[in-house]
Structure formats: structure tokens, C-alpha cells
Amino acid sequence: MVFAVVIIGELLAFILTLAPLNMAQQRWNNLALISLFIQWNGLMCSGVLCLLRPFIKNYSQQFIAVSSYLSVLLMLTVLSELTFYIMQLYAITDIISTTSHWEFLAHNLLIGGIIGALALRYFYIQHQWRLKIEAESCTKLQLLQARIRPHFLFNSMNSIASLTRTRPDVAERITEDLAELFRMILRDNHELITWSREKELSQRYIDIEKQRLGERLSIQWQTDAIPDNALIPALLIQPLLENAIFHGIEPEITGGSIIVSGELDSSQLKAPQLKISIQNTNSKNLIHRQGNKMALSNIRERLHTHFPGNASITCHEKDDIYFAIVTMPYQHKPDE
């Protein structure tokens, strides 16, 4: 950043020197003086901003912007005054001979104010850009992890390894289920699929987990109200089931139950809405396991892509039951 300040300052000095057309002889002398003044200003302002950083970094962006700008202007005023005083003292009057004290100050503040604002804006945008790059690379990874919980993968592998000896037919089926699920998970799932397909995938998933958890996992599907050809984003339900198992079933010795229910709400005047809710008995264990909130934010994002502003996912807990409710506009695949 400091390097950028030096470069910007020097460019400004050049512009200021070259701008007037009529002082050919003194130009290089002036450049030196102007550079000196500008570099002082630039570096002092950077220094002050660095010192300010710990005090203002916790405030809002507006506050930071205004306070940085004001401190730059303040530094400019102080340095201008100092410069004026020094120049008078050593009688370097070439530049300021024609100008009064106040004119000199106003002149500096005006130029400094404009350039300072531009420079701050430039650094702000650069900072935002860097954040965006970081966020993007991070999201890609999180996206993948939101789709695959490593726990699930390795536990399933272990189940298969065990079943291969004793019940090869079950092992075979689970491997097929796992393959089908992962084929969908690894696809860039930007598409809408029918409810019947989504339900099938979710049941494959539950099948795999049931091998592992046995009687501890019980699930009910109360989804007859959802038309089979209703369209929903692919793998919307599976991550919610995964969350329910991770937080509600696994931590309890006796396990728990999950209820998936759905309704088609066409009573309102507006377009019909599809509502799917997943509820699970929540673990009463002292400390909740750290889950990945990524699954939820991933679903939220995908709902927004498909139905901007019209779909939502909300979660709440009531009487030890945890609810995740997805609402979205009802769309359906045309009948073939």
C-alpha cells in the first residue's frame, strides 16, 4: 500500500509540474519541491491511518471512511501550515510569492481533498476485490463440503466393508445407492428435478444410514400431498436429512425419529406454494455437536438462484422438536 501511495504521489507531482504551460525553466526545481511536499503528505497520511487502524476497525464502513478522510484532511492542514512556515523562514518564496497564506492552504486542501478521496476509494475497491477473490475460492471448497459430509462417506465405506463379509447382497445394494447418490452430489446441481426423483434419492440416503444406525433411526414420509411431478432443486432434502441425523439421532442412545411432511398451499390468492418440512427429535445432550451451517446456507443460496425472492428456508425449535421448513413456488414438469 505504501508503495502505491508513493507512486500516486509522484504521478500527482508530475501532473502539477507539467500542468502550467508558462514556467519552462523552473520546472524541474518545482518538481523536486512539489514531490517533497506531496510525498511528505502521502506518507504521513498513510502513517496516521495505520496508527488509527486499531481504534476504528470495529466500527461501520461509513464511519471508517469518514474518519479516514477527515484525518487525511487534518494531516494536510497541519503539513501545509508547517510547510508555509518553513518556506517563510528560509525565504523559499518562488512558489508562494504570489499567494497569500490562506490561498496556499485552500489550494492544498482542495487538491489534497480530491486526490485523497480518489486514493482512498482506490484502496477500498482493491480491498473489496481481494476479499471477493478469497471468498470465491473459499466458497468453492465449502460448496463441495456442504454437499458431502466426510463423516457420511467414511462411515458408509466402513459399513460396506463390514457387510461384504456377512451380507454381500446388502453390501452390493448399498454400494449402488452410494454411487447413485454421489453421481448426483458431484454433478453441478443447478437443475430442478421432480419430487419423485428427489424422494427416491433421499430414500437411498436413508437406506445407507439405516444400515449403520439400525433401529435407532426411524423415518416417516407424510408427503402424499406433494405432486410427484413438482419441481424442486436437486438434493434439497438430503442435506436436511443429514443434519437431522447428525444432530438429532446420532447423539442419542435410543436414537430418534424424523418426519418429512409436505403440503401444497393453493388457497392463497397468489401463486400456489410448495411447503416441505423436516422435523426431528432434537438431542437433549448437554453440548450440541458443531454442525456445518454450510448445508443451510448452501440450500438458501440455491433456493435463491431458482426462485429469487420467492423461496425460503426457516428453522426453529419447539418442545425439543427441531423444524426445518422450505417454502417455494410450485412448479411442475409438464405431463408427458
Partner: peptide
């Protein structure tokens, strides 16, 4: 181990390693 399948597999492996091993199981 809380998962029966995981325990089952370990029993198999341990028996293969040494026939004379004795096993007991617990689920938590």
C-alpha cells in the same frame, strides 16, 4: 462402537489375527 456393523467387522478382523482373542462389546 455405537454401530453394530463396525463392531461386527472388528470382531472378524480380530479373529483372523488371532483365534484365541476373546471379545466383549459395548455400544457407548
Amino acid at each position: 462402537d455405537d454401530e453394530p456393523l463396525a463392531r461386527e467387522r472388528l470382531v472378524h478382523l480380530l479373529t483372523e489375527i488371532n483365534q484365541e482373542n476373546q471379545f466383549i462389546e459395548a455400544s457407548n
